[in-house]
Design a protein around this nucleic acid. Structure first.
Lengths: 232, 232
DNA sequence: CAGGTCTTTGACGAAATCTTGACGCAGACC
DNA sequence: GGTCTGCGTCAAGATTTCGTCAAAGACCTG
C-alpha cells in the first residue's frame, strides 16, 4: 500500500520550517511536493502545477485557509487537508463546511498525517477515471498526455491539451465558459471570454476532420461547450 | 445547509449512554438512526438496514472496530467514521488504513462530529446519480443540460432551456405569467407578456410532437402555463 | 540575443439568438 | 353579427455571441 509514487502534493504554509518538515516527510514517501506560502500563491499553483492534493495551513498572511478552500471549491474538487495550530471547534467546522476534506490540529504525528493522506488518495484513485478516454476516432491518453485522431497522433500545445482534458473529464456534459475558463486560467474570468474561443478554434483545427462542422467539440450557443460522446 | 433529511446512520457502540447521546444529536439534525452494540451486530445491520453511513466505536466487546472496518470494506464502500477514547496514533493509522474515512477521539464536540459527517455525506451525494426529470417521452438532464424527446436529443437556446427548466422544477403546478417572466427576466414584467408567448411557441415547436395540440406544456388560460406530469 | 513556439490581443465577417411588430384565430361579451 | 381580449404563429430587424485570421507580446532554448 505504501509508495504511492508520483502523486503531486501542494503544501501551503507561510513558515519555512513547516514546509521543510512536510517536504521531507512527503518526499520520503515518494510524493512529489510543491510549495506555496500565501493564499494567492496557492490558488495560482493549483492552476499551474495541477497537484492531486493540497495541504493547507489555516493561518496565512493574505487570505486565510478557509477562504482559499472556498475559492478552490468554486471550480475544483481537489482534496484539501487543513492544518491548524488552534484546536478551535468553530474553525474546524467552518473549514470542513467550506469544502475541506480533513482537518488536523498541530502538533500531529507524521504517521497520522500520512494515514489521512492515504485515505484521501484512496478516494481519488477509487473514482479515478480510465487512464484513456475514447470517443469516435478521438483518443486521449491521460498518463502519456497524448492525443490521436483516427490513429494518427496529434501534437497539442499545453493549453490546448488542458482544454481538451477538461472537456473529456466531463464528456457529454455542457461546461459553461466560466467553468472552463476557471479550470484553465483560475479566478480572473472577466478578462476575455474571447481567449477561450481562440483556443477552441485552434484545438478544432487540430482534432476535427472538418473544423467548419465540428463532431467532437460541440458549441452550446450562449452557454459553453461540450465534448460529444460516441453513440452506442 | 443543514437538515439533510432522511439519511440513514448506523451507530455502533457498546455503551448505552454514548448511543443515546449520538441518537439525540443525530435525530436533532433529522438523520434516521439505527443502533448496534457489538461488531457482529453491526455487520448484520449494515446488510439489513442498509444505512448510508456508519459511526463506529473502536472498542467493542466482540470484534474490534478496525476488524469490523476491514470486513465491511471487503464488499462495501459505505463511509465509516471511527470514534475512540484513546488518542493513540497507532490505532488511528491502522483504522484509517483498514478503510475508515475519518477518526475522532473522545471527547469531541458535537459540532465537529456533525461537520465531519457532512463532509462524508457531501461525498456520497456528489457521486450520486445526477438529477433527471422525466415525464412521458420528455427527458431533462440537469447536469448535462440536455433535453430529449422520445430518445432524440433536442437542442434548445438558453432562454428556451431556462423556460423549460423553470416549468420542470414545478412540474404539475401552474405557474403564472408573472412568475415565469420574473424567473427569466427579473423584475421588469410590465414590458411585454407577448415575449413569453413567443418563447413558449418556439419551445413547443421543438419538444411537442404536434405543436398545435400540446401534450407537455399546457396553457392555463388567463393564468399561466403548466408542465404536465406523466400519469402513473 | 536570435530564433522558435506558445499565448494573448485586436479586428471583422458570420451565425445564432432575442426582440418586436403584424396578423389570424377562438371564445366571451354586448 | 360585431367587437374585444387573450393566445399562438410568422417573419424581419436588432443585438449578441462565435469563429477565424493575423499580428503583437511573452516565454523558452540554445
Amino acid at each position: 500500500m505504501p509508495d504511492e509514487t508520483g502523486l503531486r502534493i501542494l503544501v501551503v504554509d507561510d513558515e519555512l520550517a513547516v514546509r521543510r518538515f512536510l517536504r521531507t516527510a512527503l518526499q520520503a514517501n515518494s510524493y512529489t511536493v510543491f510549495e506555496a506560502h500565501t493564499g494567492e500563491e496557492a490558488l495560482a499553483e493549483v492552476v499551474g502545477k495541477r497537484p492531486d492534493l493540497v495541504i493547507l495551513d489555516i493561518g496565512l498572511p493574505d487570505i486565510d485557509g478557509v477562504e482559499v478552500t472556498r475559492r478552490l471549491r468554486e471550480w475544483s474538487e481537489i482534496p484539501i487537508l487543513i492544518l491548524s495550530v488552534h484546536d478551535q471547534e468553530k474553525d474546524k467546522i467552518s473549514a470542513l463546511d467550506a469544502g475541506a476534506d480533513d482537518y488536523l490540529t498541530k502538533p500531529f504525528g507524521v504517521g497520522e498525517l500520512l494515514a489521512r493522506l492515504r485515505v484521501a488518495i484512496r478516494r481519488i484513485s477509487r473514482q479515478a477515471s480510465e487512464p484513456v478516454f475514447e470517443t469516435g476516432g478521438l483518443r486521449l491518453d491521460f498518463s502519456m498526455r497524448t492525443v490521436s485522431v483516427d490513429g494518427a497522433e496529434v501534437s497539442l500545445t499545453p493549453t490546448e491539451y488542458d482544454l481538451l482534458r477538461i472537456l473529456a473529464q466531463d464528456a457529454g456534459k455542457v461546461l459553461t465558459h466560466r467553468q472552463i475558463f476557471r479550470a484553465l486560467w483560475g479566478e480572473s474570468y472577466q478578462t476575455e471570454a474571447h481567449l477561450l474561443r481562440v483556443n477552441i478554434s485552434n484545438l478544432r483545427k487540430k482534432i476535427e476532420p472538418d473544423s467548419t462542422r465540428p463532431v467532437y467539440i460541440i458549441t452550446e450557443p450562449g452557454v459553453g461547450y461540450r465534448l460529444r460522446v460516441a453513440d452506442a
